[in-house]
């Protein structure tokens, strides 16, 4: 078995004496998108928080997460290089669309290269010319695309999608979903999508 990709090994999450799930094993290969479904309160969002490293200390945790063979356990969220796309787009309201994207570009990149990457991301998201726009003026679908491109510009090694399409209407949801899936696959990174929506099918679907 290859160690590349995102691997969850025998994970158990419990809080206040209540076990959310136990013995969860998952292997997501590079370029693969796995959909995780489950009832409300089954621990889907907690699993996302656990993988990205933002789980509350009140949780009782067992098991491990490895990414490309590296144990994520000891690493804080900012060292994991795991991109997260939340249900709320979480765009930074005090920055323009372009600044939101530039914020994610890794350090050590020249100003012109940074600008190029931002422009390329805008073109890829079909938002060319939106760099100076205030995020508040964007539609739901546009915000979701900016949020995805921003997460990807940080060059993550894996992506976590926490119900990112749930606030969009049906037509828009399908467009944004197709855009997100194709973009992630092009980057060849593993991704875990948490959703309630049965339409959000990807390479594999598992249920908590």
């Amino acid at each position: 078995m290859t160690s590349a990709g995102l691997i969850l090994n025998d994970v158990r999450l419990a809080i206040g004496g209540r076990t959310l799930f136990d013995g969860l094993c998952l292997c997501i290969a590079p370029g693969e998108i796995v959909t995780l479904m489950g009832e409300s309160g089954s621990g889907k969002s907690s699993l996302i928080a656990y993988i990205c490293g933002s789980l509350d200390t009140e949780f009782d945790v067992r098991g491990s997460v490895t990414l490309d063979g590296q144990d994520m356990g000891p690493l804080p969220i900012e060292r994991r290089r795991i991109g997260v796309m939340f249900q709320d787009d979480v765009l930074f309201a005090h920055m323009s669309v372009g600044e939101n994207l530039a914020f994610a570009v890794p350090p050590g990149v020249t100003r012109s290269e940074r600008q190029t990457r931002v422009n390329d991301a805008l073109v890829e998201a079909d938002l060319d010319g939106f760099a100076a726009r205030n995020p508040a003026t964007l539609s739901g679908g546009q915000k979701a695309r900016v949020a995805l491109m921003r997460a990807l510009l940080a060059e993550p090694r894996a992506m976590l999608l926490d119900e990112p399409f749930s606030r969009l209407d049906a037509t828009l949801r399908e467009r944004v979903r197709n855009f997100a899936f194709s973009t992630i696959k092009r980057r060849n990174i593993p991704a875990l999508l948490v959703t309630h929506d049965r339409q959000d099918k990807s390479d594999h679907v598992i249920t908590l």
Binding site: S54, I77, E78, R80, V84, V90, A104, A151
Partner: peptide
């Protein structure tokens, strides 16, 4: 503001907590 999510989002891009 949704401070927790904003902070998690910035930290997931590699920013140190206080800088984020």
């Amino acid at each position: 503001i949704n401070a927790g999510s904003l902070l998690r989002s910035a930290r997931s891009m590699g920013y140190a907590p206080a800088r984020a």
